Structures are given as structure tokens and as C-alpha cells.
Simulated assay, not measured.
Amino acid sequence: MTPRKQTDGRVDGTPQHVQDTGGAITMPTIVTGQRLLAAVRDQTFIRGGEETCVEGAKYDLRMGNRLLKAGGGPIDVMKLTETQRSALFIDPGEVAFVLTEEVLNLPNTMAAMLSPKRKLSHEGILVLGGFFIDPLYRGNLLVGLYNFSTTRWPLRPRKKLIAAVFYVLEEGEIDTFPQPESISDFPDDVVRLMQNYQPIRLEGLRDAIRATQQEVTSLKNEVREQDDWKKEFREDLGNVLQGIRALKEEVKKLTDGLENEKSLRVSGDQDLHRDFVKIESRFGQLEQQKDHRRTVKIAIFAAVIGALVTVVVSAVLLGLRHWL
């Protein structure tokens, strides 16, 4: 399949910096040596730089005076006292942002590639950010610094951070490029991010890892003891089932006893009812006998009274006769 030609004459699949110009392959030209020194001296595409930062084919961009740490706003190091400056560090596990001392002013014929300084990684610092600078970029560079070591890293302006290699584009690569967004101070979204940012301390990570290791060890022990646990569980389950069977027997005995008690109580109630009827009948008879006896007593009492009255009357009459 024949590669499709693009409108700029570049063949699909060919790197953008390699052009096919009638069979002759050309590449962007790297700005080196005296041309870099001249750019620094003349303040052309590198402004605010120093000649000592030129190293062969690259220029070392340095940390500027503007810093941004967690929980606060931008810091201007020049406005701090020496004591305050000496207290500026990136703690282990923390991220900070800085602006470069240099300001780039790239024409539309130039681009730049960035690479972190190797010594930073030796010090436990990881550089965060983009590593390609588009043509027409004008401004400082925003650089993120992450401390992955176990020691504090001092924030010192003028320290070399990133090596920049500048390329002059070939005629076939030059185009009407859009104007990139320039940076002269920390963007608002980055400031808001850092105000709410809480660093993850390595001590906390170590504690979490240690706790996780302990949990894993505990789980391993539980797995090893699983057979013993199953055996104990089976024994306990057997004891529970045996207890349930014994409980069922006791419940059956209790149920049978309650049924017997119910039958006995029904029979006893019937006997008690019969006895009550007999007693009630006997009381009726006694009441009748009592009434009869009362009648006899009254008759006897009346007879006695009558006899006494007769005797008394007779005596009185006899006395009267004798007196007369």
C-alpha cells in the first residue's frame, strides 16, 4: 500500500522533524555553542539567562524566585528574610511548583525539547510537566517538583532544573502556528489546586504498608489454621445438635406431663363438682332439719309457758280463796 501524501508534503509515518525533500532527508538544526551564547548575551529567544548555563548543545533552565507550595499562595523568595528562605523545603512525598528564572521568546522557526537534570533524580526529585515547547511560546516555564525521597529537599533559586535543546525548523516545517498560552505567573487553577492539596507523607504510606503487611500475615495465619477451625466448628456443631436433640426430648416430656396434668385437672374438676352438689344437697337437708327443730323447740317452750301460767294462776286463785 502506497503511503498517502499530506498537504505539507510529509509522508504518513515519517517523524515530523524528518522531511522528504525530493529524496534528500533533512532534519531541524540544533542551536549549539556560540549561537546559544549569543542568544543569552543578546536576550533573543532566552531572556534572563546566564552564559554559565550553556553546556554544549543545551541550556540549563534554573529555578526562579516564584514558588508555590501546598496550603498557600505563591511565594516571592525575594520578599523573604534569610531565615524564611532557609526554611523553604519540599518534604518527602510533597509536590511544589516553581517558575523558571529564564523567559523564553521563541520565533515561529524554533521549538525546544526539555529533559530533567540527571542530578535531580539522584537527589530524589522527579520533574513534572511537559517536555516540548512549541514555536512562538513566550513566557516562563511552570515546573512541578515531586520529592520521592525520605529527606527534605531545599528550594533554592538559581538551581539548575531542566536542560533545553533548541531546534531551528527547516523551511518545510515552518507553518502558521497558533500562539501558545504563555505563563508569567502561576495559573489560577494551579493555585487553587495547591491551596487544597494535602501531601501524602511517606511516613503515612510506610505505616499503611506496615499495617497491610500485618493484615496479610494475619490472613495467612487464619488460612493455616483453617483446618483446625473447621474441626472445632464441626465439634461445636455436633455439641449443639446433641443439645438440640436433648432439648427436644425434654420438651416432649414436658408436653406429655402437661397433657396428663390437663386430664387430671379435668377429672378433678368433675369430682369436685359432684362433691359440691352433694354438699349443697346435704346443706339443704340440714336446713330442713334445723327448721323442724326450731318448730319443736317453740312448741315445747309454749307448752312450758302455758303450764307455768296455769300453775301461777291456780296458786293465785287458791290464795284468794283462803284469804277470803
Results as ranks from 00 to 15, higher is better:
residue 5 K to T: 08
residue 8 D to Q: 08
residue 12 D to E: 15
residue 16 Q to M: 13
residue 20 D to K: 06
residue 22 G to K: 05
residue 22 G to P: 02
residue 23 G to E: 03
residue 23 G to W: 00
residue 26 T to R: 11
residue 27 M to H: 09
residue 29 T to L: 08
residue 30 I to F: 01
residue 30 I to T: 05
residue 31 V to Y: 02
residue 35 R to K: 07
residue 36 L to V: 00
residue 44 T to R: 01
residue 47 R to D: 01
residue 52 T to L: 10
residue 55 E to C: 12
residue 55 E to K: 14
residue 57 A to D: 05
residue 58 K to Y: 12
residue 60 D to K: 01
residue 64 G to L: 01
residue 69 K to G: 08
residue 70 A to T: 02
residue 71 G to A: 04
residue 80 L to N: 05
residue 81 T to L: 05
residue 84 Q to M: 04
residue 86 S to R: 11
residue 93 G to S: 04
residue 96 A to N: 03
residue 101 E to A: 05
residue 106 L to T: 03
residue 118 R to A: 15
residue 120 L to I: 02
residue 126 L to H: 10
residue 127 V to G: 02
residue 133 I to G: 04
residue 136 L to H: 08
residue 137 Y to P: 02
residue 145 L to W: 04
residue 147 N to S: 01
residue 159 K to H: 11
residue 159 K to I: 12
residue 169 L to I: 02
residue 170 E to W: 10
residue 173 E to L: 11
residue 173 E to V: 09
residue 178 P to G: 06
residue 181 E to I: 08
residue 186 F to R: 00
residue 187 P to G: 04
residue 188 D to T: 10
residue 190 V to S: 05
residue 203 E to M: 10
residue 204 G to A: 15
residue 217 T to P: 11
residue 217 T to Y: 07
residue 225 E to W: 12
residue 226 Q to H: 15
residue 240 V to K: 14
residue 241 L to S: 10
residue 244 I to A: 15
residue 246 A to E: 15
residue 248 K to E: 15
residue 260 N to P: 06
residue 262 K to N: 08
residue 264 L to R: 12
residue 269 D to Q: 05
residue 270 Q to I: 11
residue 275 D to R: 13
residue 277 V to W: 07
residue 278 K to V: 11
residue 281 S to T: 12
residue 283 F to C: 09
residue 285 Q to A: 14
residue 287 E to S: 07
residue 290 K to T: 15
residue 291 D to M: 14
residue 291 D to P: 13
residue 295 T to V: 15
residue 295 T to Y: 14
residue 297 K to C: 12
residue 297 K to M: 14
residue 303 A to C: 11
residue 306 G to H: 07
residue 313 V to G: 08
residue 318 L to H: 10
residue 318 L to A: 10
residue 320 L to T: 11
residue 323 W to G: 07
